[in-house]
Design a protein around this nucleic acid. Structure first.
Length: 576
RNA sequence: CGGGAUGUGGCUCAGUUUGGUUAGAGUGCAGCGUUCGGGACGCUGAGGUCGUGCGUUCAAAUCGCACCAUCCCGACCA
């Protein structure tokens, strides 16, 4: 492919509205252009990269027994009303009416549509299991799209769905999908981690996320330094072995803390460590106030609060609700004397001598013994994991890293088949609900994540499996027929080895081509110029390592093959 | 939705505080010439409803109000 016949509008300057590196580079290298917030055009180079990703996904999904189909993007509101998500999905679901006034939405995900399909087709256990997937543009009206392709409103997703007769079958589908995902992200050349996760609004009982490890990730994942346990911090279980016997502390006292509401201020004023304070956070749980206690130096994990209390929603209460529940201004809430349910983190169990808010302005309690001085409903694992916390499996320290969620697999159980009456007749002729699973990969997000993980100061460093082309041939002297002929010969040699090339034969100065080649980040660079040919060589550069070399101009095929192997080897070494 | 910021040729920005000739620069684009192995140089040229609307004023990119859009932080979501 000629550079000139491919639309690659590279930019010298970084676009003003890009914040993260993948967004900047995708725009600068001419891969994407924004049309409106969170919605992008994929330019030819981006489309090629997406196709490479999709190819790997298709091959491995087929391997896992999934068949590709294409579901509609416009979906009738009635299906969503049936599943209950018309009300629950929130404003992310872009709704509209057709000319007849009927409700529709743009598909943010396809559980309803695929369940409707399957319930219409499958009657008997003999037709199960069913495994479908599709690769399609999704639309979620995100409140805050950001970071280019990392969190767009419109994005490309592979979504797969499995329907089984029983839980054993569903578990097998889940394992097959899990294996496929490991193969996919390995083949794509990404450093990733599969982690235990919360299942959020998709629902279901069990789920794993696949994260590409990169600092720009929006998620924090906790992984064990010793065993293979890893979990999203939202989900990461924390254990507390207790402190053993603690001597009783003196009676509770109230002290004046004028104008001090933050943990840091109170701790400093009283001359105690933040870990001796108890933070009392008032949550709005399904419309009712609930107090959640954690140690002063810890953070509450809202997802755990929601899940452990079995709530539909749990969020920090608005100031008015806090003041109403505690009878005190913000910053002075405490567990003593509250007449709302109080839940405390495990870590607070058995300790005493705490400092808490006194539920009145400018005052705190000291020498608080939770068991003696107030009523704690239950002690639960409610806090956010931190660096150095103990692994729930083996007790070794946990490490926190940032990750970009590129895949998520769920065991749905019968959530949708129950709500939408997706059933089959078993061997006894008895009606049974199908057991479902769903499995997503953010295809366009994979592209962004690959760049977040693989770039340097000069531009993108594409992993070979994702690169739009395997190589770039820089024709430094496009007016020289010998040079052009050699470049063409090289392109053919590479093609015979299965490598596609982008041939930069623009009438630009060499410096421009070098800069653009590094920016685009194709794994192999071949520099074909008069100077090299005069010495009988074509020069090479490994984009990943920066290593330069030469190959004999009269043995292009052998030379290119050896270089390609060296480049692949450098990538294999990087993954380890 | 709360907080913050920005909106000026395709792109990156100056000019706005203190209103006052024909709105500038760099880059990119077109032409000519000299160059030609890590984003060359000179000359010429095209390209702007100064986000939109209303208002204040003799006069608005500049002041006021409203709206819109974009970005960041938060909440939300997965």
């Amino acid at each position: 492919m000629r550079f000139r016949s491919c639309y690659i509008p590279t930019l010298k300057e970084t676009p003003a509205d890009a914040e993260v590196i993948s967004h900047k580079l995708l725009v600068r290298a001419g891969l994407i252009r924004k049309i409106t917030s969170g919605v992008y055009t994929y330019m030819p180079l981006a489309l090629r990269a997406l196709r490479k990703i999709e190819t790997v996904v298709r091959e491995e999904m087929a391997q896992a027994g999934f068949e590709e189909l294409l579901l509609p993007m416009v979906q009738p509101g009635d299906l969503w009303k049936e599943s209950g998500r018309w009300e629950h999905y929130g404003k992310e679901l872009l709704r509209f009416k057709d000319r007849g006034g009927r409700d529709y939405c743009l598909g943010p995900t396809h559980e309803e549509v695929v369940t409707d399909l399957v319930r219409g087709e499958v009657r008997s256990y003999k037709q199960l299991p069913v495994r479908h997937y599709q690769i399609q543009t999704k639309f979620r009206d995100e409140i805050r799209p950001r970071f280019g392709l990392m969190r767009g409103r419109e994005f490309i997703m592979k979504d797969g769905y499995s329907f089984d007769a029983d839980d054993a079958g569903a578990s097998q589908a889940y394992r097959d999908a899990n294996d496929a995902y490991h193969r996919i992200f390995s083949r794509l050349g990404l450093r990733f981690r599969a982690v235990e996760a919360d299942s959020g609004s998709i629902g279901g009982s069990f789920s794993h996320e696949f994260h590409v490890l990169a600092d720009a990730g929006e998620d924090t994942i906790a992984s064990c330094s010793a065993c293979d346990y890893a979990a999203n911090v939202e989900r990461c279980e924390l254990v507390w072995e207790g402190k053993g016997e603690v001597p009783a502390c003196p009676a509770l006292e109230t002290v004046a803390t004028p104008g001090l509401h933050s943990v840091a201020e109170v701790a400093k004023f009283l001359g105690v460590a933040a870990s001796k304070l108890v933070k009392t956070m008032i949550f709005n749980v399904d419309g009712k106030p609930v107090a959640v206690l954690v140690r002063g130096d810890r953070e509450v994990n809202e997802v755990k609060v929601k899940n452990l209390l079995g709530a539909e929603s749990a969020e920090l209460a608005a100031p008015e609700l806090v003041e109403k529940a505690t009878g005190a201004p913000l910053g002075f809430a405490g567990p003593c004397g509250l007449d709302i349910p109080v839940y405390a983190d495990l870590e607070l169990q058995g300790g005493n001598g705490w400092v808490t808010g006194a539920n009145k302005g400018d005052a705190h309690h000291v020498n608080v013994d939770l068991a003696r001085d107030c009523k704690v409903e239950r002690y639960l694992d409610l806090r956010l994991a931190e660096d150095g916390d103990r692994c729930p499996r083996c007790g070794a320290p946990l490490e926190l890293t940032r990750g970009i969620e590129v895949g998520h697999i769920f065991k749905l159980g019968t959530k949708y088949s129950h709500a939408m009456h997706c059933v089959y007749l078993d061997e006894g002729g008895k009606e049974q609900e199908m057991v479902m699973g769903c499995y997503g990969i953010g295809v366009s997000r994979v592209l962004a994540a690959a760049i977040e993980q693989n770039h340097d100061g000069n531009g993108i460093v594409f992993p070979p499996a994702i690169a739009p082309f395997a190589s770039e041939i820089l024709v430094l002297d496009p007016a020289d027929e010998t040079v052009c002929a050699k470049a063409e010969e090289l392109e053919k040699a590479l093609a015979s080895l299965g490598f596609e090339s982008l041939v930069d034969d623009r009438t630009e100065r060499p410096g421009v081509k070098f800069k653009d080649a590094d920016l685009l980040g194709l794994p192999m660079q071949f520099i074909c110029g008069g100077k090299g040919l005069a010495k009988g060589v074509v020069e090479t550069k490994n984009r990943l390592t920066g290593e330069k070399g030469t190959l004999p101009a009269d043995q292009l095929l052998e030379g290119a093959k050896a270089f390609a192997e060296a480049v692949q080897a450098s990538w294999d070494a990087r993954r380890k």
